[in-house]
Amino acid sequence: MQRKLISGIIGILIALLIGALIMLVQGYNPIQTYAALFNFSLFGFYPLATTLRNSVPLILTGLSASVAFASGPVNLGQPGQLLIGALFATVGGLYLDLPAFLLIPVLILLSMLGGALWSGVAAMLRKWFNMDEFITTLMLNMIADFFTYWAISYPFFDRSAYSPMTPQINTNGWLPIWGEFNSNVIVMVLAFFVIYLVFNRLTAGYEWRITGHNSLFARLGGIKIDKNYVTVMLVTGALAGLAGGLVVMAGPHRFLKGLGANYAWDGVMIAVVANNGLIGTLLYGLFFSALQTGSLGMELITAVPREFIQVLQAVTVLVIVAGRGYLDILIDKTIARQKARERAT
């Protein structure tokens, strides 16, 4: 844990330094830029609330990727699962007329169902035809992208709009907002606790983790690998779908083009930096969200364009991941050297 924390903080600092260097080369003032960046994302109630709100899709897709990678399946289909989940929630919100206390849970479940359905396709292709989910989920992402684009352009198109989007969903399906605090954070925290519990405390989670570590050992120990594989795919798909549903219910309350943005890929990156740890995913998700939230203010105050954050994120990931491996080698080497010295004496 301590080693992780140290390598994470060092990595972030080095990445910020590299970012500062890039800014210096282009003639920007890095101190002013970082000040603006974090002023608009961390300091104050409104910035903090916005950062929390924006972190929800990042953390949920990150959790989806973390759980999948740690349990074995290389589910890279979060972008598609998120879109299908968002579409399910939107369609439910357009046609169902229920009171708020019923409609909100129903829409949440619908979005999870949508995501699980889409990851289920990949899981079935693997189970029946032994097709590698690594490539099928990627292809399904593109297919989901075009499918949802079609859905919002024709069957669910808002006739009063000029660009592809659906009408707004039933107001009963909007997630409540208290002041600046959006309740999508509560749903995310709940989902995090459930997943954390299942993954770390229940037998099912133990089986997933063991399978991810060493599937041969798991199989010899009597774990049903195939069944667990499908479960993990469905659960991680549902998580990504939930992210999409919450984006619709918390934000624009409709499905518009480009809704998925880069959330899911950022989520995958977050899982990768967190080394598939759940708490790490939560923390890095908040950090990435702070960067993205602050980028708007940064663009406003300084001349640095918002897209710079995307570069900074990728640099952070590379530095932390490489640093972690390097740090491990360094520590192992010193341990080995110590042992050698002990033997020599």
Binding site: N262, W265, A314, V315, V317, V321
Partner: peptide, 10 residues
């Protein structure tokens, strides 16, 4: 993965 996203951002 990181490199692909880096390319997109950059």
């Amino acid at each position: 993965i990181a490199l692909n996203l880096f390319a997109l951002g950059a």
